[in-house]
Design a protein around this nucleic acid. Structure first.
Length: 273
DNA sequence: AGCAACGCCTGATAGC
DNA sequence: TGCTATCAGGCGTTGC
């Protein structure tokens, strides 16, 4: 599923491809993906606006449009956002298309969880989902002191803390498993039970796995493709996630899959304590 | 308040 | 073989 590295890959590509282009018009095939405003208003309000910047906050893609408007896209689990030729075939489960001056931007989502908002500037500054997000893990605002303190303040399992977007933005199931493996921590450990040394190790691991993911243009396990429809390559570099039964890269013991907080969780029982 | 459970969805897979 | 049940999970909502 698209997490920070996948969304960042899409952001970088779209930034190259569509900044400066104008939205000629749009087509909505599944109206519930448009959370705000109504589908009719969406079509009217997006028409003729020029894309001036493509940004990202956590797993949200942010498109700055002329007139102070902001287009927000979240791909949730199976969403794809692809910039392509107007003559490309339109796949099943395509819910929204933005026709640009040159080419089109297509939102396709098998599970229909992905969603889109179009907001004028004064509303976008107050969009609750964005306002609640914790710091960006790859910027200076995400400090070791902050993260260590948040862990110390939580009685939850450490994996739940990593997945909490209000604590740190952008980590999902894949990179949570990978970070915990790299830090040598069992995902079920209580966050406030980690030593300072362990918490610091996890801080560094979080940043490392996200950077690796970006370097490999994301992880394509099931549905993820980048903004030009290509798969990422980080699935070939995963250490434990989606590798049940395969040897741990450090000790050779088989990786196991367990259920933790309702989510499939992969770990090496020998290396993660 | 803080945390757990549920619902949203469809396609792949397991089990009979 | 062909059917049904289960699973996958980010996040908003609901409930304890």
């Amino acid at each position: 599923m698209p997490e920070l590295p996948e969304i960042e890959t899409i952001r970088r590509q779209l930034s190259e491809e569509i900044v400066g282009l104008t939205v000629i018009d749009a087509a909505i095939y599944l109206s519930k993906v448009i959370k705000e405003p109504s589908p009719g208003s969406f079509l009217r309000e997006i028409q003729g606006r020029r894309i001036s910047r493509v940004g990202r906050r956590g797993k949200y893609l942010l498109f700055d449009l002329s007139g102070g408007y902001l287009l927000v896209v979240h791909l949730r689990m199976t969403g794809q956002l692809v910039y392509e030729s107007e003559t490309a075939p339109q796949p099943r489960h395509t819910h929204l298309i933005l026709h640009l001056e040159r080419g089109r931007l297509r939102l396709t989502d098998l599970r229909q969880f992905g969603c889109v908002w179009l907001l004028p500037a004064e509303k976008s500054a107050r969009m609750a989902q964005l306002a609640k997000l914790g710091p960006e893990p790859l910027t200076a605002e995400f400090t070791e002191t902050y993260f260590v303190q948040r862990l110390k303040d939580s009685r939850r399992q450490v994996k739940q803390v990593l997945l909490d977007q209000e604590i740190v933005a952008g980590i999902g199931n894949i990179y949570a498993d990978e970070a915990l493996y790299l830090a040598g921590l069992h995902p079920g450990r209580r966050a406030d039970g980690l030593s300072a040394r362990e918490a610091k190790k996890l801080y560094r691991a979080v940043k490392e796995v996200l950077r690796e993911g970006i370097l490999h243009r994301g992880t394509s396990i099931q549905h993820y493709v980048d903004a030009v429809g290509r798969q990422g390559s980080h699935q070939d570099f995963l250490r434990v996630h989606y590798r049940a039964g395969q040897p741990c890269p450090r000790c050779g013991n088989p990786v196991v899959k367990v259920k933790l907080g309702g989510r499939g969780t992969y770990l090496c029982p020998a290396c993660q304590t």
